[in-house]
Simulated assay, not measured.
Amino acid sequence: MLRQPFEDGYITISRTRATITYPASFILIGAMNPCPCGYAGSNTHYCTCTSRQILSYQNKLSGPLRDRFDINLFLKPVDFKATSEKETESSKTVRKRVEEARNRQYDRYGREICNSRVSYDLLIKTSPLTAEQQRILHQLSTKKNWSNRRQIKIIRLARTISDLQGSIQINDQSIWEAIKLNRQPVLKRGSISV
């Protein structure tokens, strides 16, 4: 049910007497435990799940739906003492960076549309990948068995990261960051590799 609104930004409801289309542009944020017991990859608790149970649990979220998420992260517990000592950007600074990135996108596409909604053809026309970037993406997608949708999501995310950095073209660092933000963790009992 979520596939059409995810892709198109609208939803069509058909009944016997009428078909109605509603706008459905939204941001979906989802969260799930890494395994049934919730402790796979934990440094403080022992996971009691078998590899088969972990795989079965993770497969409850279908591949086609998972491919539609722009960012997939595995989060570890936060050490609040260590975090409070780190220097962080203020919300005002982040907001300014996001507004500048959006304005770059509006200028690039000639209308108020962002990287996530622009057509793939226009995205590639205005921000072509270098031959080396294409080679790396093709090599990784073959090795990891990524769908075309996943590859396009990575390109869109890399373009957005480049916009946030103020870069005119998609740079290599943005490609690697987008790949890192889109990897699926491989969970085994008591350990995690991302």
Rank of each mutant, 00 (worst) to 15 (best):
T93S: 12
D70V: 02
D121H: 12
E89V: 05
R17W: 10
P5S: 02
T142H: 08
T88F: 12
T142N: 13
E100G: 08
S62E: 08
I11Y: 15
N103T: 09
I155N: 02
I71S: 09
K76Y: 11
L129R: 04
S167F: 13
K188Q: 15
R17C: 11
D163R: 01
R135C: 07
H138S: 15
V94S: 05
R135F: 11
D67K: 05
Y109T: 05
L137V: 06
Y109K: 08
E85Y: 09
M32N: 02
A40Q: 00
E132T: 10
R159L: 07
V78L: 15
R189I: 00
E89I: 04
A18H: 11
K125I: 04
T130I: 01
S119C: 02
D70M: 07
N43Q: 14
S141G: 01
S25A: 13
L55P: 02
Q133C: 05
I155A: 06
K144N: 11
S25I: 00
W146M: 02
F6V: 03
D163V: 04
I179F: 07
R104G: 07
Y57C: 01
E87Y: 03
C49W: 01
L2P: 04
Y10S: 11
T50D: 07
V194K: 11
I179Q: 00
L75T: 04
Y109M: 00
L137Q: 08
Q134C: 14
E7G: 03
K188E: 13
D163I: 07
N103H: 12
K76L: 12
L137A: 05
S127D: 09
R95Q: 13
A18M: 10
G41T: 05
S147H: 03
N103W: 08
M1A: 13
S162R: 01
G9I: 00
R97H: 08
Q58C: 07
S90T: 14
S56R: 11
E7W: 04
A40S: 03
P128S: 09
I155P: 00
E99H: 10
K180E: 15
S51M: 14
A131M: 11
G41A: 01
E99A: 09
N148A: 15
D172V: 02
R189Y: 05
E112I: 11
R66W: 10
S62F: 10
I168V: 12
S162W: 00
P185K: 04
I155Y: 03
I54G: 05
P23L: 09
D67C: 06
L181F: 12
Y46L: 15
S119I: 01
K180M: 13
I11P: 06
A101H: 01
C37H: 06
I154Q: 01
Q151T: 15
Q139L: 13
A31M: 12
I175M: 07
S56I: 00
K92E: 14
S84A: 13
M32K: 09
K180F: 09
K92M: 10
I179P: 05
L164G: 07
D70E: 09
D8E: 15
Q151C: 14
R183Q: 15
K153F: 04
N43R: 14
D121F: 09
S174N: 03
Q151Y: 07
E87I: 11
G166N: 04
E100M: 15
K81M: 12
D107A: 13
A24V: 03
V94I: 15
G38V: 04
N72C: 14
S56P: 07
D8G: 01
Q4R: 03
S119Q: 06
Q139N: 15
F69E: 05
I124V: 09
T48D: 12
Y46N: 14
T160W: 03
